[in-house]
Design a protein around this nucleic acid. Structure first.
Lengths: 137, 137
DNA sequence: CTACAACTTCAAGTCAACTTGAGGTCAATA
DNA sequence: TATTGACCTCAAGTTGACTTGAAGTTGTAG
């Protein structure tokens, strides 16, 4: 059966072999077995790594990501945690949107000092308020 | 005039004194002067810190954030870089949206293994494709 | 069958972003 | 005047996420 060795997985996932071994050590992924000393991976690990990469770039720590998988290796976020995670991501999106609007504003605003520009300050305040609202909810 | 000392700035910005000193060392903020040994901050530093916090949570490194201010301390991203930054943020938002959709899907999908669920895999693939498209553009 | 590229382990190193601790200064209050 | 609390500096420590290096093993192409 077509098992993949670590170099193959690395190439296809964009995760270096050293990082793959590190993930295994953390229990984030595992290999199907060994051929001699060499790790053999099922192709499913690629999906798992795609998800891990996405979550990582979404600002989740490896530990948090690990918590999104159940002990039997399934992607399974504890009921009730899902809403929490989704809200967390939405908040992140709001902040990023605010940041983008601010940067866009800089490009067109002639004010000498953006941090003093009323429009800019409004964007910044909105973002901060947004953040507070989220953390109190 | 109402200068703020480091404890006040810390409280109002949510950034610890040790971090404020570290930011100063990096040239990310500066104090207006000293009263004896004590740093005295202008209230404008609070806006600056609000922006820094936002950018930080948007995944920018302190070094990148530093690059968003001109040498005279103004928030001023080099012309041409703005679009780059905005695109970078939009990409990030896309990824986060995908991640959110996946997590939401998990909450409602009865499939035993989400990584095998066709709908889920489609979301994951879209996200990965999205990412590739961005990095090639 | 031998060479070699690709793997292995394990310990130590790196980098960013801070934090902590030791030892010192200073203004105000008891 | 003595004490307190908030500040100070500087060096070293911490955490997360890996990477690097040394020293050894193995599957396969020539």
């Amino acid at each position: 059966m077509n098992f993949l060795d670590i170099g193959e997985v690395s190439m296809r996932s964009g995760v270096k072999p050293s990082a793959l071994r590190y993930y295994e050590e953390l229990g984030l992924i595992q290999s199907a077995g060994r051929s001699g000393l060499r790790r053999q991976y099922e192709s499913g690990v690629l999906l798992r790594l795609a998800f891990i990469n996405l979550a990582k770039s979404g600002g989740f720590s490896l530990d948090e990501i690990k918590g999104m998988f159940s002990t039997d290796g399934q992607l399974q976020i504890p009921r009730g945690r899902v809403q929490e995670r989704v809200a967390q991501i939405d908040a992140q999106i709001e902040e990023l949107s605010a940041l983008r609007d601010m940067l866009s504003h800089i490009a067109v605003c002639p004010a000498p000092s953006h941090l003093q520009c009323p429009a800019f300050r409004q964007l910044l305040k909105d973002a901060v308020l947004q953040k507070k609202t989220e953390s109190n909810s």
